[in-house]
Computed example of a mutant assay.
Amino acid sequence: MEDFEKGKETGLGSFLFMRSSGQQLGELTKLIEAGIILPVMDQVFPLSEINEAMSYIESGRAKG
């Protein structure tokens, strides 16, 4: 949480890396619901456009 607050203060944001764990996912849910972590998605692709989505990610322009 401390690293997140530092990123928030500087405007640089923070990254969160997790393993597949029920306990961690529960904690993540609490942080999202409390507005502490704000997910970022700059674009949404339907599954039928998976190739376009992967190209977008590989271009380096994707945020989130």
Rank of each mutant, 00 (worst) to 15 (best):
M1W: 06
M1D: 11
M1Q: 10
E2R: 06
E2P: 14
D3E: 12
F4H: 09
E5H: 11
K6W: 08
K6T: 04
K6E: 14
K8Y: 13
K8P: 06
E9D: 12
G11T: 14
L12R: 10
G13N: 03
S14R: 02
S14Y: 08
F15D: 09
L16I: 06
F17W: 08
F17R: 06
F17V: 08
S21L: 12
G22M: 12
G22R: 09
Q24L: 13
L25M: 14
G26M: 13
L28D: 03
K30Q: 15
K30I: 07
K30D: 13
K30V: 09
L31S: 05
I32N: 06
I32T: 07
G35R: 10
G35A: 07
G35H: 11
I36F: 15
I36P: 03
I37R: 03
L38G: 05
P39V: 05
V40L: 05
D42I: 00
Q43P: 01
V44H: 03
V44T: 11
V44E: 05
V44I: 08
P46D: 15
S48H: 09
E49C: 02
E49T: 01
E49M: 10
I50E: 15
I50M: 15
N51I: 09
E52M: 04
E52L: 05
S55L: 09
S55N: 11
S55R: 08
Y56G: 01
Y56L: 02
I57A: 07
I57C: 04
E58Q: 04
R61M: 07
R61P: 00
R61A: 13
A62T: 01
A62F: 04
G64F: 05
G64R: 02
